[in-house]
């Protein structure tokens, strides 16, 4: 391990004086990105302001009588309850994932040999189990534990789903922490948990913040577990309400798009808060 890895611990972006030259290629890419992402978004937002009849058909693609019906229909007491549920589930799952993934990633980064390699491979393979295939086994477990219809079932399932992902993402950050730092502390007589807590964790806080954000975002959108483990729809989070819009008897397109926008807005707010953190911390593998 070379000493250059130390630089990761002290990201150097906040100067604002970074010299970025905009080449024609960069400008072209920006324009392409803008087009490719603005058009679908525009379509989503336009549709959410349409009447059901105006969704299909080119004559009403751009010019139509805008209506707030879809949003008016979406803003119900259930929506607020669902927003609350989404917050509880996403926050708690993220906390659990971090609580488990941080020590695990730390361990996997520090321990050497064949074991961590096998562990890492297993984590990757675990990611491959289709989520649909986990529903029935989980249902049995939660049924046995009498946890069905509780937030805890969904939270635990989400946590089990996301923890391997979080460990893979977190591990390189811990590898970037120079072991010398810990050695120095242990010579000073600090106890092992204290070393971890007050020396290692602060160094990797960007990585942790990044992983936390990503886990939060993914859990926020997860609906399969919510739909299956809640027996009453009164407890559904936003993502599950969204799944409710689709059926073979007809899809309420404006309703679906409006709920999509409503579901995604909190994420945008979260992103603007963590924008600084993300831009400094998302350096998963800038680490050897």
């Amino acid at each position: 391990m070379s000493s250059s890895t130390v630089t990761v611990a002290t990201p150097r972006t906040a100067h604002g004086r970074r010299r970025t030259r905009k080449s024609p290629a960069a400008i072209a890419i920006r324009i392409i990105l803008a087009i490719v992402y603005v058009i679908p978004l525009l379509w989503i937002v336009l549709t959410s302001f349409k009447d059901k009849d105006d969704v299909i058909g080119s004559s009403t693609a751009i010019f139509f009588q805008p209506t707030l019906d879809a949003y008016r229909a979406a803003f119900t007491p259930e929506l607020l309850a669902a927003l609350g549920q989404s917050l509880v589930i996403a926050t708690t799952s993220t906390a659990i994932v971090l609580a488990v993934a941080i020590p695990a990633a730390y361990g996997l980064a520090r321990v050497r040999g064949v074991l961590p390699t096998i562990g890492l491979s297993l984590l990757i393979v675990l990611q491959m189990v289709p989520q649909t295939a986990t529903v029935i086994p989980f249902f049995q477990v939660f049924g046995g534990l009498r946890l069905l219809d509780t937030n805890l079932a969904v939270i635990l399932a989400d946590a089990a789903l996301m923890t391997p992902f979080a460990i893979i993402l977190l591990r390189p950050f811990f590898r970037a922490v120079p072991p010398a730092l810990e050695e120095a502390a242990s010579v000073d007589g600090a106890r092992s948990f204290r070393i971890f807590w007050s020396i290692v964790l602060p160094v990797v806080r960007n990585g942790v913040a990044t992983t936390a954000t990503l886990v939060f975002l993914i859990v926020w959108g997860e609906f399969l577990y919510a739909v299956n483990f809640f027996l009453t729809p009164g407890n559904y989070p936003l993502s599950a309400l969204l799944a409710q819009q689709v059926s073979s008897y007809g899809i309420n397109w404006p309703g679906l798009m409006a709920l999509g926008v409503i579901t995604s807005l909190p994420i945008l707010v979260l992103f603007s808060f963590t924008y600084r953190l993300l831009k400094e911390g998302l350096t998963v593998g800038a680490v050897k």
Binding site: R18, P40, L41, L217, G221, V246, L256, I267
Partner: peptide, 30 residues
């Protein structure tokens, strides 16, 4: 292309994150 820290960059990134956070049923249907 987006390694600057300007407002346009921020807006473009925000746009992309917004899209990423939308569920596949919305993105796929669009």
């Amino acid at each position: 292309a987006l390694r600057g820290t300007g407002q346009v960059t921020g807006a473009l990134l925000g746009l992309m994150v917004f899209i990423w956070a939308l569920p596949p049923v919305v993105n796929g249907s669009v």
